[in-house]
Design a protein around this nucleic acid. Sequence first.
DNA 1: CGAGTGACCGCAA
DNA 2: ATTGCGGCCACTC
Length: 104
Amino acid sequence: MEEIADQFRLRVYEVVAQIPRGRVMTYGQIAALCGSPRAARIVGGVAHFGDPDLPWQRVVKKDVSLAEGYPGGITGHQRQLEAEGVAMVQGKVNMAVHAWKPSP
DNA sequence: CGAGTGACCGCAA
DNA sequence: ATTGCGGCCACTC
């Protein structure tokens, strides 16, 4: 089961794909889970050039604010999160409710 | 193969 | 509290 590819980006795919509905995660958190806590930018780069079918909308910045490169802008991104069941206030996600920790 | 760059993060003024 | 700057790592051209 650990025979996944060595590529950092493929690990990001696994993590993002495992984020359940109604939960959000930060780029830095995902990067840390992938083995590089300082590669948060890479997660964003992978998000842009990676698999468009993955729920990148559940991935937010550490300030729980939304990314700017998302198609449609913050507005489109925010609307997608609400469609997932994530309540937002002033463009911010309630981490106390939606903060998710990956399963071991 | 080399260089540039980014859907970021952390700190300093 | 806000604003600006650098650094970092992996991906794309």
